[in-house]
Amino acid sequence: MKKLDQIPQKLLELKKPPEALFYTGDIGLLDSQVNVAIIGTRKPNPYTKALTSTLAKELSKCGANIISGGALGVDIIAHQNSLPKTIMIAPSSLDYIYPSANAHIIKEIAQKSLIISEYEKNFLPKKYSFLQRNRLVIGLSDIVIIPQADLNSGSMQSAKMALDCNKPLYVLPHRINESLGTNSLLQKNLAKAIYDIYDFIASLKLATPQYDAILDFCSKNNDFEEAYLKFGDQLLEYELDGKIKRENNKVIIL
């Protein structure tokens, strides 16, 4: 555990910036150009689990850091699927692992990524420290995604922080009577819905030269008809350019 020499500028812009920060891991991750917060319920449904996993993986492939709070549910799914491009903000000092149920993943984050805390030592989480942690998650982020949240939840308090800080806020669309918090954000036009992960990432213009949405999609789903429905004549251009070929209506990446 070390003390940061300098508080990141994004956090200095908070109404109550941290007086000091302590860290373990790769401090170079703070130099990333784009940080995306993914936070949400501790009890995600299967739909949320699957899409949170995909969001974290695809965003990190494009060079974005995934910021979250290490909690059960959405937070830890986001961290695990974006390693090593992830930053965890802890609600305790770094000499404690919280929550202990996530210990194996948190240890991996400490080794491969970065964990930050406001608390130097011997500090167990308090009710207020979760809110303090959340403000740092939002403050450090450029974009905030809340895949699932109940009304009056901590995630909804984080949504308010994001809106107060003028951070772009995105949610997953859910069925009626599910994820009432995020659905209320949509209803009030306070957040935008992510209907297609690849289109969403493309709209953010994050992709690095190594990232190719078409090839990435085809590596996971090689059905030519489905790929054509999604990408249209772009897929045919890839075929003409020799990037892919068709065999038995399957896409083969060359």
Rank of each mutant, 00 (worst) to 15 (best):
S32E: 00
L29M: 07
L114D: 02
A207F: 13
I97D: 01
G242V: 08
R175S: 14
D212T: 11
E19H: 09
I214E: 06
I115L: 13
K126E: 13
A101Y: 07
K250S: 07
G181Q: 07
Q210K: 15
Q80T: 11
P18R: 07
A64V: 07
D233S: 11
S60V: 05
V74G: 04
L204I: 13
S219L: 03
A162M: 07
K243A: 13
S113F: 00
A78H: 06
L29W: 01
A37E: 07
P18H: 06
Y228F: 14
F130R: 04
V137T: 07
L59Q: 01
L140H: 10
A71G: 10
T24M: 09
A149Y: 05
A159G: 11
Q210P: 01
T48L: 11
Y23A: 03
T208E: 13
I252E: 08
L21E: 00
K57G: 01
L83P: 05
I176C: 09
D142G: 13
Q6V: 12
Q234I: 03
V74S: 05
A103G: 03
S153D: 12
I176D: 15
N189K: 15
L72K: 15
I27L: 14
S179I: 04
S117G: 09
I138D: 05
E237W: 03
V137Q: 02
S219R: 08
D212P: 09
H104W: 01
V251S: 03
L131C: 01
Q210A: 15
D95Q: 04
L204S: 10
Y170T: 04
Q148R: 05
Q234K: 11
E58L: 14
L215H: 04
S92R: 00
K220A: 11
Y23M: 06
F224K: 04
I66R: 02
I115K: 03
L186G: 12
D241Q: 14
D5N: 15
N152F: 12
I145C: 13
N248K: 15
A50F: 13
T41S: 15
T52G: 05
A159T: 12
D216E: 13
P8S: 06
S92H: 01
Q132V: 10
V171I: 15
K205F: 11
L12N: 10
R42L: 11
S82W: 00
A227E: 02
S179N: 15
Y23L: 04
L180C: 12
A20Y: 00
I197C: 12
Q187N: 14
H79T: 06
Q9I: 05
N249D: 12
L94F: 09
